[in-house]
Design a binder for these strands. Sequence first.
DNA 1: CCAGACGTTGTT
DNA 2: GTCTGG
DNA 3: CCAGACGTTGTT
DNA 4: GTCTGG
Length: 224
Amino acid sequence: MCGRFHLLATAEQVAALYGVAVTQLMPRYNIAPTQPIAAVRHSRTGGRELTYFHWGLIPSWSKDTKFASRMINARSETAHEKPSFRAAYKRRRCLIPVTGFYEWQKVASGKQPMCITAADAQNGSLLSFAGLWEHWQSADGSEIESATILTGAPNELMTPIHNRMPIFIEPDDFDLWLDASAPLPAVQSLLRCYPAEKLRAYPVSTHVNTPRNDDPTCIAPLIP
DNA sequence: CCAGACGTTGTT
DNA sequence: GTCTGG
DNA sequence: CCAGACGTTGTT
DNA sequence: GTCTGG
């Protein structure tokens, strides 16, 4: 699963990796479900754009937004067939830039939050979650664009921590992932387990548990 | 035909 | 919207 | 994901 | 325990 992450790259770094215009990017140490998340998608004019989406996908046919908080993740194994996700899976894929994410590992004393980043992480080392987005319009005409993060089986690093992890897309595969007309078997081939050697994990304090804590303490290594 | 569901995770 | 259950 | 609420009435 | 909010 993936229920919390951080984005600590500069606007320039995001702009360079995805080839999008980024005007401003506030550092976010603790991004939680229901909050706006930045994601890259194909724009109507043919290029790419960075837009903000409500984290928690709202299917276009929903009567209200109550379902959204349970739609923060979609199983990569079944998203192509689930009523809530299949339309978005076919035509509305996106990339969610992150510099790391959090998982809570069950231990004897309770739950230990772990921070996972790129193995070679410098400040601003970006990874890309595979995401889906959807457009929703309420009866009174208000509109919401929302998104979800695809999950899959854990790699060797993540297995002791949790039984699920997010799907990552590598830069060479960005075009294919974002292409609404790409053949689905090719798209499906991208839903693979990200290599353990490209990630590292370390414990952090329970400071990160509270969503309103959005500061450097969230990512600070826990000193035992 | 209409009504009702449509999800993931973890835990049991 | 689309599928399943009644 | 975790944190925090979980209720009604009448009055201001 | 279970739901809502962030």
